[in-house]
Design a binder for these strands. Structure first.
Lengths: 206, 206
DNA sequence: TGTACATCAGTGAACGCGCGTTCACTGATGTAC
DNA sequence: TGTACATCAGTGAACGCGCGTTCACTGATGTAC
């Protein structure tokens, strides 16, 4: 608070966070592959070597952003699932919350799922944060299928996958853009989510 | 055919196609952002300047690959939709064909939907090819909802979106990898698609 | 069938550039006494 | 309260690198006569 604006000090005071924020800004403008450590340092008003006091290398900065994103998603999913006792309603709320997260935090979503995924996927902190964020969906579906014989455990996995696919796909299409050329692209995204999830709930078409 | 292996000629004979193939190989190894024109030229056994006789610049090579991919998808969708007269069955076949395309042509899929999408999305040839590939899905859904009043046209758009989301999401999750850490990741992908689309058809959960 | 010539599709050297990372350094900060 | 000193978090110059693209060029190919 009181710190904002005082940028003329030798010690920055909050460089780690500043680098992460500017990393996101940069990716928003130029895409994940357009992000460079040097430019992040530059717009943070700091020398090219400074970030190395906070992150081992370029990949670790991206990983930190991804972890942050998964924690935010986790929190959003938690809030959504607390809104309803009925697991069916809760599931729908989780789905909507997932897509809304992607829409409202487009850049995080990119880093979380697509930023040169290979190096990030070998990072334990990232993988754990991801698992945490997804457990709300799994728990809720488990509640919808209380019989827990062996066969059922597989059905649950498939159900999780079906739900995840639907919402991840809606989010992906929104971000990948082809959607924008369609008529529906002009609808309000929130309305669109309701309609689409409703469509799926009715079990029509597929 | 008879040309294969004769690489010691001054004129390559088929450089355009060779560059596109090696572009795909490179992206498979290093990701879209790791693809460089120079390396494509290198592994094609040609000087760094040679590609400029076939593509105006780096982006245009990517665009050509994307167009090729959409044409292949179009063809796959066409074949799938010819398998069934019943539009319900046809829809399911289209969905499966879409996901199988992504799984079997992972790299094309990446270029088509994610390769620094901004420049590609401004390319008319790419956008037209994309529209062509998607029209099978739209036609089939239109057939399922023959009443064509105004309200219905919107329902159709939403239905297209719901279906597209499901299959694009399944494909995305498969490619983005988190899926692989789940139990279901160990299932055969083809089986998985059947189960998931079946799940959705039953209208369970969501 | 030969020849002249336009055009096509390569070469290879060079350009300017920005990158990730390292290095020896130094100013700022916190702590023990 | 002052001072000595360790540690933290910056600087700025330099490294080697590979990139996209351009340039003047040349060998190969196709065609008209």
């Amino acid at each position: 608070m009181a710190e904002t604006g005082r940028t003329d000090r030798y010690h920055h005071g909050n460089l780690r966070q500043t680098l992460m924020n500017n990393c996101l800004k940069l990716i928003e403008d130029k895409g994940v592959s357009g992000f460079t450590l040097r430019e992040v340092a530059r717009i943070s008003g700091v020398s090219p070597a400074a970030p190395y006091h906070h992150f081992r290398n370029r990949t670790e900065l991206l990983a930190a952003v991804a972890v942050m994103g998964f924690k935010m998603l986790d929190e959003a999913q938690r809030k959504a699932s607390e809104q309803f006792d009925n697991p069916g309603h809760r599931l729908k709320a989780l789905g909507k919350s997932y897509v809304m997260f992607a829409v409202n935090h487009k850049v995080y979503f990119h880093v979380m799922f697509r930023a040169n995924p290979e190096p990030l996927r070998e990072n334990d902190q990232v993988m754990n944060a991801a698992k945490q964020a997804l457990r709300h969906l799994e728990n809720t579906i488990r509640e919808l299928h209380p019989e827990t014989d062996e066969d059922n455990s597989r059905h649950i996995q498939v159900a999780v996958l079906a739900c995840w696919s639907m919402v991840h796909g809606l989010a992906s299409l929104w971000m990948d853009g082809p959607l924008k050329t369609m008529e529906t692209g002009k609808l309000d995204i929130e309305e669109l989510i309701d309609l689409t999830l409703g469509q799926a709930a009715a079990g029509r078409d597929f």
